[in-house]
Simulated scan of single mutants.
Amino acid sequence: MSSTVSPLQPCLHPIYARLLCAALCQRGFDEAQILLGTGLDWAQLHSDNRSLNFAQVQRLVRRAVQLTDCPWLGLQVGCATQVSAHGPVGYAALACADLRGVLQVLERFSVLRLSSLRLTGYLEGERYCVRADEEFDLGDVREHILATIAGTFLRLLEAVCGTLPVGELRFTFPFAEPAWGARYRELLGPGVDFAADCYSVSLPLAWLDRPSLSADPQAARIALRDCEHQLLGVREGGDWTTRVQLRLLACEGRYPTLGQLADEYHLSERTLIRRLRDEGGNYQQLLDEVRQELACWLLLNTPLSVEAVAERLGYQDTSNFSRTFRRWLGMTPNAWRNGQLAVPAP
């Protein structure tokens, strides 16, 4: 796993969190119940297209499984996800001439929707395999994330090629078979195995030439151009909001002022303010969000005391940190930590 990737870096398009929330709403849960203890804001989640970081996703998934007592919830959500939810990546895949092109799109551009996994395609005898390697440890939400991906992949194949002999598909998962393993075979078909080295899906090599039901060369060119443009932005550091977020995440206790940050980017302070404003944010808001996420992560994933967490975030006065944390999440750091640790892992 890459040591250069942090679970606090943006990694998941918010549409997938919204789909999970929608599934919970369909089960009768309201907004307050769904987001309790997650630190997420309903209005922001459903209006802001900035990617969520893994810590946010982890808290939401834990809450969802706690509410539903359904450890295979990710599989159900994935199987119900429309291809349009994948944005330009989904449109590009649908418009490809054949299944070979679809897989190439997924392998190259999946990072635009989920950057915590790296997809690699390869030949294995008479089969074509796609494996997913974790960029960092997905921990207790590994099953939910990988099951969602498996269901999403099956739904995409069906949209592109129509009805498929699912018995020819093989899914492997890097965890022991759970008590609900029959649910996987019910939804994905009989070719499901567990306790593998990593997640992978494979299909007969002959399938690669299957024509797409929705092939559209012109639409494919437009969608692929859009994907390439977005991918270039990711490789160059993303938009200005993401650049600033990543810079702040790299700090520990001593954060640069807006002026210092502008100097680092060889910009005037006014220009950096304008660029962040054009993307719907400002420096203080981003600093606040980064501190909040770091606080939540450290409280949940380390044994550090509240005083030590406050110091790591640059607060000289622990009481000031506690007041700020209460403003963020409506409870004290200790109350939030105890509540989060009480949530059972999937």
Rank of each mutant, 00 (worst) to 15 (best):
V111K: 08
R323S: 04
S322D: 10
D317L: 08
C96R: 09
G238M: 14
R50F: 15
E307S: 15
L117Q: 03
C21T: 10
L8W: 00
D193I: 06
G37D: 04
G101F: 07
E168K: 04
E107G: 10
L20H: 00
W328N: 01
L114K: 06
G238D: 06
A32H: 15
D216G: 08
L67C: 05
S116V: 09
T172Y: 00
V160R: 05
L114M: 09
G167W: 05
D197F: 08
A308N: 07
D278P: 06
Q260W: 09
V166L: 11
N338E: 15
A206W: 00
A342L: 08
D69I: 04
L261Y: 09
S84G: 07
P7T: 00
C296Y: 02
E126V: 03
Y283E: 01
S200Q: 14
H86F: 15
D197G: 08
A295F: 02
H266L: 12
N49E: 13
R291D: 04
C227R: 01
N49G: 11
L157R: 01
N334Y: 10
T38F: 05
G167A: 02
L246A: 09
P333V: 13
G28T: 11
C70Y: 12
I145K: 06
V89F: 08
V83M: 15
V166T: 09
A223H: 13
L224S: 14
V201L: 13
L40G: 00
A147E: 09
G237K: 10
D226G: 03
E168L: 08
Y255L: 15
F194H: 04
Y265R: 06
W72S: 15
L232K: 15
P211L: 01
A23W: 07
E311S: 13
F54R: 04
V83H: 09
G167F: 00
S202R: 14
W297N: 02
V141H: 06
G151T: 03
D137T: 10
R312A: 10
